[in-house]
């Protein structure tokens, strides 16, 4: 599903965010990316949906070297990837339903299909009855679930989550993790960047640890590595 080959990213400011990263993620895997703030987790995810381009090395998603995609081809890649952010990035002037439906409408999906898929995405995150509320009327956890619904409404084979529980209390964080597990069980490959030690330790999934922009550990069913934040 994802293959990173000797990927490095140096920002124009000179900051080396990622150095010589090699990583293989199979289809249907659930992977935690862990490390301190500034370890390079977010940059690694951004490289996967090409919000950033690698300074050197190659990033392959479903066999395609995404660094070589033209501007015109980029939207095709993005339609196959769902992204969840720590700060939700919801549209404040649209209802919950509209926020989720937006992702489908932009792509010209038929109205009946938009309604059906938006409702089932909201069902999955248990927010059906909140459809008509505005994001500002929801709690942080609920807003994150809306963000999750929007990311999966187009049923992408890959879901990238950047600190999805960063702003949430422990109980709500577990709700989100349970949802991600369910989504993964449906066959979606899930990558979660986090520094939530408790969750990583409890879930016993593959853990890729980053430190100073380098991948320092990759354990198949591990916990939060000692000495990494």
């Amino acid at each position: 599903m994802i293959r990173l080959k000797q990927v490095s990213k140096i920002y124009p400011s000179g900051v080396r965010a990622v150095t010589g990263a090699n990583l293989d993620v199979e289809k249907g895997e659930f992977v935690f990316l862990v490390g301190l703030s500034g370890a390079g987790k977010s940059t690694l995810l951004k490289l996967m949906y090409r919000a950033e381009t690698a300074t050197s090395g190659s990033v392959l998603v479903s066999g395609t070297d995404i660094g070589r995609l033209s501007r015109g081809q980029l939207p095709v890649l993005r339609r196959r990837i769902g992204v969840v952010f720590q700060d939700y990035k919801l549209l404040p002037q649209r209802t919950v339903f509209e926020n989720v439906a937006f992702a489908l409408k932009v792509l010209g999906t038929s109205r009946s299909e938009v309604d059906k898929r938006t409702r089932s995405a909201l069902d999955l995150v248990n927010l059906r009855e909140y459809s008509d509320l505005m994001p500002g009327q929801l709690s942080g956890g609920q807003q994150q679930r809306v963000c999750l619904a929007r990311a999966i409404v187009n049923t992408p084979p890959l879901l990238l989550c950047d600190e999805p529980t960063g702003n949430l209390d422990p109980d709500t964080s577990w709700d989100i993790m349970r949802l991600l597990t369910r989504i993964n069980q449906h066959g979606t490959t899930v990558l979660v960047a986090t520094h939530n030690k408790h969750i990583v330790d409890s879930m016993r999934r593959r853990v890729v640890a980053l430190d100073g922009g380098r991948i320092v550990q990759d354990i198949a069913r591990g916990g939060y590595p000692v000495g990494v934040g």
Binding site: P75, V106, R150
Partner: peptide, 9 residues
Amino acid sequence: IMQLVGASN
């Protein structure tokens, strides 16, 4: 968000 969900420029 439009860019993120794959709307063309």
